[in-house]
Simulated assay, not measured.
Amino acid sequence: MEATSARQRLQKMLADLDRSIGVLRGDPLSANDRSPADAGSDLSDADRAQAMLAVATTQRRAVLDALKRLDEGTYGSCLDCAKPVPEGRLEARPEAARCVQCQGKRERRR
């Protein structure tokens, strides 16, 4: 992926993530604004929002790291094996830091 195109996509992703994180961090409705029938879903909604916030924050970090790799001239090289990350992977996941094989190894270790 060409550096200018990658930077534009990553910056758009970052802006979208920042908006989403802002919404997820917004103040929930106070207990007085909720009906008793909604009380049971409060915990579920809060847990769901917290999980979504965690995912968005992790993805935001990956996008910032990818922008840093662009600045350093290492974007598109696998962090583990230094081989090129396939173009198709970067098209699908511009923030990808590893080739498919190394990413698979990393996920199996978890």
Rank of each mutant, 00 (worst) to 15 (best):
Q50W: 13
T58A: 08
D38L: 01
L43H: 06
D47G: 15
A31L: 11
S41D: 13
D33R: 12
L43I: 07
A31S: 12
A31G: 01
D47Q: 15
S41L: 05
Q59E: 14
D45Q: 14
A31H: 06
R48A: 14
D42A: 08
D33I: 02
S30L: 03
T57Q: 09
S44L: 08
D33H: 09
G40P: 02
T58S: 04
L53D: 05
D38R: 00
A39E: 10
A37C: 02
D38N: 04
S44H: 10
D45T: 09
S44C: 00
A51P: 07
A46G: 04
L43N: 06
Q59C: 06
T57C: 04
R34D: 02
P36T: 01
Q50I: 12
A31C: 00
S41E: 07
A51N: 15
N32V: 08
L53S: 12
T57I: 04
A56T: 03
G40Y: 02
L43M: 10
M52T: 12
D38V: 00
V55M: 08
V55E: 04
Q50F: 14
A39K: 01
D33W: 08
L53E: 07
D45W: 03
D38K: 00
A51L: 14
D42E: 12
L29Y: 04
M52E: 14
T58G: 03
P36I: 02
V55G: 00
S35D: 15
L43Y: 08
A54I: 11
G40C: 04
L53T: 09
M52N: 14
R34K: 13
N32A: 11
A51T: 11
S30A: 06
A39G: 01
A49H: 06
A54V: 12
T58H: 02
T57G: 11
A51K: 11
R34F: 04
S30H: 09
L53M: 12
G40I: 07
A54E: 13
M52F: 10
A39R: 03
D38Q: 11
M52H: 14
A37K: 04
S44G: 03
Q50K: 15
L29G: 01
S30Y: 04
S30E: 10
V55N: 03
T57D: 06
D45C: 09
S35H: 15
T58D: 02
T57K: 07
L53H: 11
R48Y: 10
T58W: 00
Q59V: 10
A37S: 06
G40F: 05
A37W: 01
Q50R: 15
T58I: 01
D38T: 08
Q50Y: 09
D42S: 04
